[in-house]
């Protein structure tokens, strides 16, 4: 298992390196590069810009610049926001909890319902339920998240008045945990929709794969009740490939979170990205890109770890 994890760790580091190169390239691809903001300052002279470029090391060869940038990044110096000169890392970390809270809730909803739908579809293959679930999943994958958000707001906030149309808590506060949960329901469900579809499809395929395996026949041959065969023998095997899916789905979930946050004015990282883009606040934009890729890498690594714990076959290698 140590070898397996070490291999995965090395792989992640390689990916992290490439990811950082992509991030660096995007920032330097921007018209005007990192200096773009200052170039717009009225009355700034070429000489002054050149001086700043030299000060920031922008006249150095790109590999040298990359190395300096990476060292600062690893040292925790992610630069300062153009908007309010706050350290980028602090700005992002201030917004991250709201996003993670939204994502975590959505993934719990998605895994529970998606797995249930997938299992039911697999054991009642080609039933009415299975067909509706299949069509429903395809449609859910086709609905734009923001539109679904608008529909939910229209029905549950505008018409029924059951759920607040946005924000993380009632402005002015004082509502306590229930107030938070009340605000969480709609955005979490909206974000979860696509993931429910994905999970139900993969779970169905995985379950179908498992229930046709020889060891399931063995379990039946032992005379075990169908329910025991399903939950004790099939479920665990069918869930194993799903662990990897959880890791892979991280970027999709994060992208969905950005859109959901916009619709529900949720004060998370996605909104921060949009705001920063509006201000051409490149250091923050860069920081968010790096954090999002880092989350994806961590998600994959966590999935690998979990798989190693859950699958006894991995332990030996």
């Amino acid at each position: 298992m140590a070898n397996f994890l070490l291999g995965r760790l090395v792989q992640s580091l390689v990916l992290l390196f490439i990811v950082s190169v992509i991030g660096f390239a995007v920032l330097h691809l921007a018209p005007g590069g990192p200096l773009a903001q200052f170039a717009l300052t009225p009355g700034i002279s070429h000489a002054e810009l050149a001086r700043m470029a030299h000060q920031m090391g922008l006249d150095q060869p790109l590999p040298v610049q990359y190395w300096a940038w990476l060292r600062r990044l690893l040292g925790g110096d992610w630069g300062h926001s153009y908007r309010d000169n706050q350290p980028v890392l602090a700005v992002i970390l201030g917004r991250l909890p709201a996003t993670l809270e939204l994502m975590a809730t959505a993934i719990v909803i998605a895994v529970l319902t998606g797995v249930w739908i997938g299992v039911m579809g697999a054991i009642r293959r080609y039933s009415i339920f299975d067909m509706l679930a299949t069509i429903g999943a395809m449609i859910a994958l086709s609905i734009p998240t923001f539109w679904f958000g608008l529909i939910v707001i229209y029905i549950f906030s505008v018409n029924l008045g059951w759920l607040p149309p946005g924000n993380r808590s009632t402005i002015g506060g004082g509502g306590g945990i229930l107030d938070y949960l009340h605000h969480l329901i709609a955005p979490a469900i909206v974000l979860a929709l696509v993931e429910v579809a994905v999970w139900s499809r993969y779970m169905r395929a995985s379950m179908l794969d498992v229930i046709n395996q020889d060891f399931i026949r063995t379990a039946h041959a032992k005379g075990l009740p169908a329910r025991t065969v399903l939950w004790h023998h099939a479920m665990r095997n069918a869930l194993l490939p799903m662990i990897a899916l959880a890791g892979v789905e991280m970027p999709t979930l994060l992208g969905g979170a950005l859109v959901t946050e916009t619709v529900f004015t949720w004060p998370g990282m996605g909104r921060l990205l949009l705001d920063s883009l509006g201000y051409r606040d490149y250091p923050v934009v860069m920081g968010i890109l790096m954090v999002s890729a880092l989350l994806a890498l961590l998600g994959n690594l966590a999935a690998d770890l979990l798989a190693a714990v859950a699958d006894p076959r991995i332990r030996l290698r």
């Binding site: 395996q213 020889d214 005379g223 009740p225």
Partner: peptide, 23 residues
């Protein structure tokens, strides 16, 4: 089901795949 695996049981052809890998 109460007879199966109890009074009548069966051995299969594929020992490599007939046991549940996670138990």
């Amino acid at each position: 089901r109460r007879l199966r695996g109890n009074e009548i049981s069966m051995i299969f052809q594929e020992p490599m795949t007939s046991l549940n890998p996670v138990h």
